[in-house]
């Protein structure tokens, strides 16, 4: 099968959906003439016209809010926030408008929009361009929250997001854009709320999403050398969450580590851990283990930034601790 990058997969998903459905349009900073800062919409404006690939001024609150209006009117905007950190300037349209419009109107309207936002650390972008904000969005009923880790997942999930009738926070990891993976030529979609067993194993479950899935898989290799057979589950979407997959795996392994790049405090790993303890406590042979980022502002210096989020060796260490191994 052909291999393409995560970035190309995202680009293809948008392209295919724009060809398929005239209601789909792209709006955001540098999306048109430049083809986006990550090069994901190169050539789109020439092909689809400036009315469907819209270069905006630096007005995140304004154009995110306008996208809510367009979605209510039946279009399907794909909004790009150049960095998820810019949600700070467009939070009202995300939190109070897009997320709540359907409920507040008693189901009269839907807001079919995708907000694509690169997040994550490791690119030396410092405090305002490196955050992981997924937990913030999961706290807002009305939003769906999706975080792909591979090119295959990115394409299939983004196509689903564009066709979905709810506002979807589609959180891409900047450090994954250049990673390659198999993506078929023919069309496919991946449903939300369907986790993917990225590696089957019997001794311990590692739950992860976004870039930490890649690290978890690397860790699983090292763990295999130590005789530990780890199962790595990529949650792919946090809302909706595939509880069945989590339960099935833990029922098999009886031990679970949850990995996230975001700061540990108030993170989604804590939410999953609580659900596990509330529902299947008797399946656990050890306390749930969180392996998460530090509760700090992302620093600039490589000498500092590399210490703020879990790497494969941190996951190996965490899993060994969970299993009582030295």
């Amino acid at each position: 099968m052909r291999k393409i990058t995560y970035g190309q997969a995202i680009s293809e998903a948008m392209h295919e959906e724009m060809v398929r459905d005239e209601a789909v349009f792209i709006i955001g900073e540098d999306m048109g003439v430049m083809g986006s800062v990550f090069g994901l919409t190169r050539g789109f404006m020439e092909e689809f016209g400036a009315h469907r690939v819209i270069d905006t001024p630096i007005s995140e609150s304004g154009f995110t809010g306008m996208s809510v209006g367009a979605a209510i009117r039946g279009l399907r905007p794909i909004v790009e926030l150049m960095y998820v950190d810019f949600a700070g300037v467009s939070f009202d349209p995300i939190m109070n408008q897009a997320a709540k419009m359907r409920y507040m109107t008693g189901g009269q309207v839907s807001v079919p929009m995708v907000i694509r936002a690169p997040q994550g650390a490791g690119r030396r972008n410092a405090g305002q361009h490196s955050q992981n904000l997924e937990a913030l969005f999961t706290q807002i009923p009305g939003l769906k929250v999706v975080l792909p880790s591979t090119p295959y997942d990115a394409k299939g999930l983004l196509k689903t997001a564009i066709r979905n009738n709810d506002p979807v926070m589609f959180l891409e990891h900047k450090l994954l854009y250049a990673t390659k993976g198999e993506v078929p030529e023919e069309e496919y979609l991946i449903p939300f709320g369907k986790a993917d067993v990225k590696r089957a194993g019997k001794d311990v479950t590692i739950l992860a999403y976004s870039r930490e899935v890649i690290f978890a898989l690397q860790a699983a290799k090292e763990l295999a050398d130590l005789g530990i057979d780890a199962e790595v589950i990529d949650l792919r979407s946090l809302v909706p969450l595939d509880w069945e997959a989590i339960e099935a795996s833990i029922t098999k392994t009886h031990r679970v580590a949850i990995v996230q790049e975001a700061p540990q405090r108030g993170g989604y790993a804590g939410e999953i851990a609580t659900q596990i303890m509330e529902k299947i406590f008797d399946q656990l042979d050890a306390p749930v283990k969180r392996i998460a980022g530090l509760n700090v502002v992302p620093p600039f210096s490589p000498a500092l930034e590399d210490h703020i989020y879990p790497k494969p060796n941190d996951i190996v260490a965490g899993v060994k601790e969970l299993l009582g191994r030295k």
Binding site: G65, G69, A70, R73, D92, N96
Partner: peptide, 15 residues
Amino acid sequence: AGIPIAGGSGLTSKI
């Protein structure tokens, strides 16, 4: 907050 929503509706008519 209604102002950008109106703007988006105008954008829709234009698109």
